[in-house]
């Protein structure tokens, strides 16, 4: 087995195992760390696909920012059933929905033949040219979305003049 296959299977095992950890564990802090494992697994998959820049972005943004923010939210919302979370009553239905969508996706994936070309990397230079030349306006709109989301978050969690 060649080296990239080994890396791929390790990363895929981390991704899927971490995802199962998120949806199965009873302790929400463990769920946050399982999410971290899963996101690092996704970064490994990006590396196998020669997307080094995206792997780095994935580790920095998800590992460095999103999981930390989720842990802060856990800290600020300490609920009484913090360590023994339960699923709600519709979990059998959720299993059916999950398996059903997995089956549909598998049929779609295995039944469609995609013309695969030579496996080659996308240069960061090509990506930057596409992003900052042709997709410059969507890029600016995305930054505006981030700004609006940040202002909205601040407005929403602000305490209203001592009212609460």
């Amino acid at each position: 087995m060649e080296f990239s296959s080994v890396i791929f299977y390790i990363a895929a095992a981390c991704t899927i195992g971490g995802a199962f950890g998120v949806v199965i564990t009873r302790n929400i802090v463990y769920a946050a760390f399982a999410l971290l494992v899963s996101l690092f697994g996704v970064a490994g998959l990006f590396l196998v696909a020669f997307a080094e820049f995206l792997a780095l972005v994935q580790v920095l943004i998800y590992g460095g920012a999103i999981v930390i923010v989720i842990l802060f939210a856990l800290m600020l919302t300490r609920i009484e059933d913090f360590e023994h979370l339960t699923d709600n009553g519709q979990w059998p239905l959720a299993v059916v929905a999950g398996l059903g969508i997995f089956g549909v996706l598998l049929i779609a994936v295995l039944g469609t033949s995609v013309r695969t070309g030579p496996r080659e990397s996308v240069g960061v230079r090509d990506m930057a040219e596409a992003l900052f030349r042709d997709w410059a306006v969507p890029f600016e709109v995305a930054s505006l979305v981030l700004l609006v989301a940040l202002i909205g978050a601040v407005v929403m969690v602000r305490a209203y003049g001592g009212k609460d």
Binding site: T15, D87, G98, F102, L105
Partner: peptide
């Protein structure tokens, strides 16, 4: 596909 299905299960089943 597996990751998406697991995420869907989590969205529907978790409290």
């Amino acid at each position: 596909a597996g990751l998406f299905s697991i995420g869907l299960y989590g969205v529907l089943a978790r409290k």
